[in-house]
Design a protein around this nucleic acid. Structure first.
Lengths: 197, 197
DNA sequence: AAATGAAGTTAAACTAGTTTAACTTTTACG
DNA sequence: CGTAAAAGTTAAACTAGTTTAACTTCATTT
């Protein structure tokens, strides 16, 4: 069962490191599969994040609520991406973010409690996680750069270009939240762009 | 020579992993010490970043120039911090950022060309780098959250609280650039804050 | 001590993006 | 199918932050 479900994860892992059959079996024995329905929470603000999740199918948003109760989307995730509150997971402290499913979503979970054991048995996994973190850091920095130097319109165009499939899958007001603007203003931008072309 | 200079780095490393004497000696043999003067560049936009730098003393800013030639500071670094363009270093492609010294600065450098060799000889270093990346990712995400939900005044107060020593060491217009606002507006915020208290 | 330039301040006119509110379109579902 | 709720649009009034420009203060060099 898990073997089949985990196929996309193994494929992903093999891009970074190679595993022997025994290592693969050991790894699988420490993972678990879980299915969430649209609307369900994978992580809730305040909870300690006990796992990181590899998406097999579906789509999630990572967001937080500010003082005024406003939702701010930090990240989307789709198939072959990871999601969790990495800060909470690392420090095992209360999460700053919510991760909620925008579609029915299947994940493979790495448990925090097994992490040390996994590294001990398969030291190569340190390399895998290092590479994953490197990628995450680079895209996080890209986001900061975008926020800094681009107008809302430019950021929207960049978002479309960078994540063409996501725009089709999530409602527009969530795209606005991701861009850090109001849905009304995104609407205005889109009608401007429609006129231009 | 390097042994003495590298003491702060070894102290830093020991917070994450422990090294035998041989490992320490091997590591030191692959590092190098370098001194930069105020104004000099550690990394230049466009160059491939061949090393990551641990600051022994001094202060640097990481910034990029936008289309209009405007400077945007992404990060400061002081003693016991790392600096480089991690994206360029990882992918060995042209850097998006400049790293320039705001004070005379001493660094210990990890060379990209020795990285594999180091990991092979001292696999524990993978863990060290993983932990460093985790920390960097968390603070990068914190920055995104701040950008999103705080007004310029709130961001400034948070910056002061988070990096109390940096404000004293860098000119105010660089703080403004870090916050993503103009120096004029930061000046206004400061005079407002002075009135309030 | 004078002189030059770099850093910081103030204020008026401006603009990108927000707020509010009324309206339309699309989706979900009994 | 019809209806309610969710998502998206439009426009007017507003605000946080920018731009420009003139001025002051501070630091550095001669």
């Amino acid at each position: 069962m898990l073997e089949i479900k985990a196929a996309p994860l193994l494929k992903y892992i093999k891009k970074y490191i190679s595993l022997t059959n025994e290592e693969e079996a050991f790894l699988l024995s420490k993972l678990n599969y879980r299915k969430y329905l649209k609307g369900q929470y994978v992580v809730q603000q305040g909870d300690v994040c006990k796992q990181i999740n590899f998406l097999i199918s579906g789509c999630t948003k990572t967001f937080f609520l500010d003082d005024k109760g406003q939702e701010h989307i930090v990240l989307f995730a789709i198939e072959d991406w990871w999601t969790s509150d990495i800060g909470s997971y690392i420090t095992q402290s209360g999460s700053d973010f919510n991760v909620q499913c925008i579609e029915d979503t299947e994940v493979i979970q790495f448990q925090y409690d097994y992490e040390e054991e996994l590294y001990k048995e398969i030291p190569k996994l340190e390399r895998l996680f290092r590479k994953m973190l490197e990628k995450a850091l680079v895209s996080s920095q890209k986001r900061i750069v975008g926020n800094f130097s681009l107008s809302a319109k430019e950021q929207y165009l960049q978002f479309k270009k960078q994540y063409p499939t996501i725009e089709q899958r999530v409602p527009q007001y969530m795209v606005a939240s991701y861009l850090g603007i109001t849905k009304e203003f995104l609407s205005k931008i889109k009608s401007q762009l429609a006129l231009e072309s």
